[in-house]
């Protein structure tokens, strides 16, 4: 008898717990981004204000663009995420594979007045970021001035950090090998162009330290593990501002992308998720992100609302834009699988 009672008791406790936790799951919104300074800024600019205005619980998670996780969720029909931050290529690839809701056609987003490229079939851009070259200021007698300097190990010897991904890496290898910015993607679409990019990477492979999360490059630079690293500009600005990292940034040849919201197909809170995305592209809301991280707005009407003192740190500032390349999501959606496979095997050799 005592055993039966304890079973009944624990069963009831479990039932109560489930009942208590379920409404929280059903009402809340789970937003996923890339952690670190970006997610903190998004929390302050988008998530907290939205949660407050709508009296809704916003749960957060982080990822690094690993599509397999998303694919597993969608395939199993157990979608735990509602809104996800992607870069253009992740968004386009996932959209192509049918993993995302096609929200791009919604009037709410079409009429939001987004800059060119910030609205695609499945993704709504919320901020402009750039991959830039960050370096320790005292490491070299002559500071690097452009991203392609990372391939010059004679003038700039020592370890250098790259993101463990073919995206941006291959484009930059071609730029460094003398391909014009306008020809990068057409060259990379040919087998010879891919060979050329990997051949260029081979020249510095032994000096490369690979990073996976955006918070790593400032860390690697500060600890002296690498002397220069490709990084997302907001992360470096954040480390300089908050941790006195004193890191230099070379902007020329920056590779520009959008942080975009997408909604996985089968999201359990589709309406709320769309409402949240629409909230993020209201001009006044969209402009506030730049106060917390050095990423620019995507809403045209928001650019006048950005505080004047942060403008020089944004990727879109004229003095930063020389030789800028825009990441081509559609290219990666088409060629990503093959290039990822080749990259993974190349890196493990």
């Amino acid at each position: 008898m005592p055993r039966a009672r304890s079973f009944k008791q624990s069963f009831l406790v479990g039932l109560v717990l489930t009942a208590v936790s379920f409404p929280a799951l059903a009402d809340g919104l789970t937003v996923v981004s890339w952690g670190g300074a970006l997610q903190e800024a998004q929390t302050k600019a988008f998530l907290d204000p939205y949660a407050k205005a709508n009296n809704i619980t916003v749960t957060q998670d982080t990822w690094s663009g690993e599509l397999a996780k998303l694919r597993a969720m969608v395939d199993s029909g157990n979608v735990a995420w509602d809104v996800i931050d992607v870069d253009p290529q992740t968004g386009a690839t996932a959209c192509d594979q049918g993993l995302l809701e096609k929200i791009g056609a919604d009037v709410a987003f079409k009429s939001a007045g987004l800059v060119d490229g910030a609205l695609t079939d499945c993704a709504v851009g919320t901020s402009v970021y750039a991959t830039i070259l960050a370096f320790q200021k005292q490491a070299f007698p002559k500071a690097p001035t452009k991203l392609t300097d990372i391939f010059d190990s004679t003038a700039f010897p020592g370890k250098r950090g790259f993101r463990k991904s073919p995206v941006d890496t291959l484009e930059l290898a071609l730029l460094a090998d003398g391909v014009a910015a306008s020809d990068v993607y057409t060259t990379l679409a040919t087998p010879a162009g891919v060979d050329r990019a990997f051949k260029k990477l081979d020249t510095i492979k032994k000096d490369i330290v690979w990073w996976e999360a955006g918070a790593q490059p400032p860390q690697l630079l500060k600890s002296g593990e690498v002397k220069m690293a490709l990084a997302w500009n907001g992360r470096i600005a954040d480390a300089n501002a908050k941790e006195n990292a004193d890191l230099g940034i070379a902007w020329t040849n920056q590779i520009r992308g959008f942080d975009m919201w997408v909604i996985p197909s089968g999201s359990k809170n589709l309406a709320a998720a769309k409402d949240f995305v629409a909230f993020s592209v209201k001009p006044d809301v969209n402009a506030t992100l730049s106060n917390y991280i050095a990423y620019g707005p995507t809403v045209k009407a928001a650019s006048d609302l950005v505080a004047k003192d942060v403008l020089p740190n944004l990727p879109s500032a004229p003095q930063n834009s020389e030789g800028a390349l825009a990441q081509d999501g559609a290219f990666w959606a088409k060629n990503g699988d093959a290039l990822n496979a080749r990259f993974s095997s190349w890196i493990s050799q």
Binding site: A338, A341, R342, S344, S345, W346, S348, Q349
Partner: peptide, 10 residues
Amino acid sequence: QEASYDFRSI
């Protein structure tokens, strides 16, 4: 001809 993992060398 696509490069892939070389499991033997791994």
